[in-house]
Write a protein that binds this DNA or RNA. Sequence first.
RNA 1: CUUCGGAUGCUAUU
Length: 420
Amino acid sequence: TRIYNFVIGALVKSKCLDLAYLKFEQMSVARCIPDTLTYNLLIHGVCKTGIMDEAFRLLKKMDNVACFPNVFTYTTIIDGLCKARRPDRAVQVLEEMRSKNCVPTEATYRSLIHGVFKNIEGPVAYEFIEKWMERESILNKNICSTVLYCLSKMDMAEEACKFLEKMTNKGYFPSIPTFNVVMACLCKGSKFDYAFKLLGELNTRGQVPEITVYTNLIRGLYNAGKVGDAKRHLNEMLDRCLISDLYTYNISIDCFVKLAMMHRASNLFKEMLGKGHIPNLVTFNTLISGYSKSGDVNKAREYLKLLLQNGLSPDVFTFASMIDGLCRNNLTYEALKCFDEMIQWGVSPNAVTYNSLIHGLCKTGEVSLAFVFYKQMKEKGIPPDVYAFNALILGLCKMGRLDSAQNLCQYMLKCGNRAD
RNA sequence: CUUCGGAUGCUAUU
């Protein structure tokens, strides 16, 4: 039986179901008795191919030959049912297993929850899980974190709030990993009031959030135009999180950059040098991008020089920032030069590089040159995206070539882009 | 050795 199981397992894994079944038939001839594992393997196979009726037939057969299904059996079937979009039946199976004194494991619940969220549309999935949990009167931390994980990953901030509200009232509080994903989701979905509330609750529990929580929050606030709040939390972050390695320094510098606080960014840079940390390419790129964005091309160049002095080679990020900065100052000619330099460095331009350049050229009215680069990027197999199209369309409009602009817009849509 | 999942990790373009 053990040998047969091994073979059947291998066959199922390599998707040779019919051969697996053949071996299964041979077992009785060889006077081997299939055990629970044998059936589990076969059920696993049929579930993967979505033939749930066959899975149930096997389950019934187990009953007939007094071979008892175990957690693995039921979990496999539940997983299969969810993937076949039959969550109601999955819940039935869950109840059936309980009635047979088979205790569901974390895997069982995860199969159900993940399966539902992955295979059913978001709102419907949430409603389903919500109802299911109401019937399950137990409050299980693992179930909660799985649900929150799914909601967060699907960017269902609204639902995540509702769910948290309900569960925290029952005494639940997310673990650190769950807390992090949920916070990321809330910040992305601009649910700041709830994010603050959650953060406050973590504080009252005497815990300090990880730095990534703050960066998500700061970035979200900044994107939502709440610069004041973002600054406040940046200060709090610096106050409470240990900025002690390259990674955390880079994060903090980036926060200052994003909030256009370049003096603070460079102070932090000096501080890290003073403490003996060696800045890396990301550090320099971050600072260069900041100065470029603020229009201070000279400072950006200064840091580029420093980058080289540190034995680092500029990469596609470096050049993108430089080109962007030059274009912002209408130094289109310099930007083109920079583009050439980039190629001399052996760095291949990507979509962002072209977008920046095209945008800059259009801004200074050199639309025909912009189209040269537009063609070049297509030739290089880089599909132009909305950034490129928007710049070109705007450029054409400014020239009064509305017809061409419209045509390009049509073309953009045809290429599978969505107009914004 | 049979079932489901396993976060967060810094930098560029409207």
